[in-house]
């Protein structure tokens, strides 16, 4: 028998901000148990690794605070796991809808693509591609609209970060430095 949680809005389940996280205090959401198990295992692994830093050599060893914090992680993670395991499941949610809706999966795929292409292709083409596909997918607006928004945003961000703040994004196939030099020569020549 599954118990129905109080009818609550999605907002409450997802929390209104970082100070008030989501979740349902009395119920277990899909995937929550697996996450709790993962955290407990990861904490155990980190505690092990913290012990490897310097063992129990001295109070002042570089491993002292990491050992204390990872131990705290393990204890709390186990307590949370125990609590979570005993909670009744929410009856109205599935993993597919509550955790991995199509839009989240799509974004994840796009982000992985971005991460893979950033270095070989360079910042400008990768970002343009990412924005174009993402906006097109999510909004379903026309190609012209999407294209204009994409171009304007990428150029805007590039101008601020690359030109004003001289942040050197991966250039990839676009010879950014040469283009900038052409403009610089143009301006210097004209002045």
């Amino acid at each position: 028998m599954s118990v129905q949680p109080d009818p609550e809005s999605d907002r409450a389940r997802e929390g209104s901000s970082d100070a008030t996280p989501g979740g349902l205090p009395e119920f277990r959401r899909p995937g929550e148990l697996a996450f709790a198990v993962f955290l407990a295992l990861a904490s155990a692994g980190l505690l092990f690794s913290a012990h490897d830093i310097a063992g129990f050599r001295a109070l002042s060893s570089p491993g002292a605070i990491p050992m204390a914090t990872t131990a705290a992680m393990l204890v709390t993670a186990l307590l949370v796991l125990w609590k979570t395991a005993r909670q009744p499941k929410t009856g109205d949610e599935t993993l597919r809808i509550a955790v991995f809706p199509a839009s989240v999966i799509a974004m994840a795929v796009l982000l992985i693509g971005y991460a893979l292409l950033l270095k070989p292709l360079g910042f400008l083409p990768t970002s343009a591609l990412f924005l174009f596909i993402a906006i097109k997918l999510l909004s379903g607006r026309s190609i012209v609209f999407t294209g204009v928004v994409t171009l304007a945003s990428v150029i805007g961000i590039w101008l601020i970060f690359r030109i004003v703040f001289t942040v050197l994004m991966p250039a990839g196939i676009v010879p950014e430095a040469e283009i900038i030099q052409i403009f610089r020569d143009l301006f210097n020549g004209g002045a």
Partner: peptide, 23 residues
């Protein structure tokens, strides 16, 4: 949101990169 979400994503990526020029 359909426009804002991808834009925030891109800005977050550039922002994270800019701090120390690191992928």
């Amino acid at each position: 949101r359909a426009v804002l979400i991808p834009l925030i994503m891109l800005l977050s990526i550039v922002g994270a990169y800019a701090v120390n020029n690191s992928i």
